[in-house]
């Protein structure tokens, strides 16, 4: 959403906007634990940056460039893995061809996350 008074202001700079009620802070399970795959994404962010492949600014740049549509439609850790992957490719950790091949191999292993991540 372009701010007509300040066109340089990007979508993620949402402080001060109007918005609806704070979601789910009283919902049962609000304080839920994260799924294993989400915790792994978090770990990959820490490890990828600790090894010098990207910085938190690199993570943020890709998240912000993904745009508002991604913010609305993807979950938090979905956006994060997309950004981590982009940063790792840019940092030379592996190539897009490596990724395509590996993703095909992973999805051929089974229908659920448990099946597909078995042995890893």
């Amino acid at each position: 959403m372009l701010d007509p008074k300040n066109p340089a202001r990007r979508w993620h700079d949402m402080g001060g906007d109007t918005a609806g009620p704070i979601p789910d802070m009283d919902a049962p399970g609000e304080d839920h634990d994260f799924s294993l795959w989400e915790k792994r994404v978090d770990a990959l962010m820490i490890i990828g940056s600790a090894k010098g492949y990207f910085t938190v600014d690199g993570l943020r740049r890709v998240l912000e460039d993904m745009g508002e549509d991604a913010f609305e439609k993807m979950t938090y850790y979905e956006r994060w893995i997309a950004s981590i992957n982009q940063n790792l490719i840019e940092g030379g950790a592996y190539t897009t061809a490596d990724l395509a091949e590996k993703m095909a191999e992973v999805s051929a292993r089974g229908k659920t996350y448990g099946d597909a991540s078995a042995g890893s």
Binding site: L88, Y94, V106
Partner: peptide
């Protein structure tokens, strides 16, 4: 799928 692939590639 991407998370598994990224982790295994690393």
């Amino acid at each position: 799928t991407m998370e598994i692939a990224v982790r295994e590639l690393l």
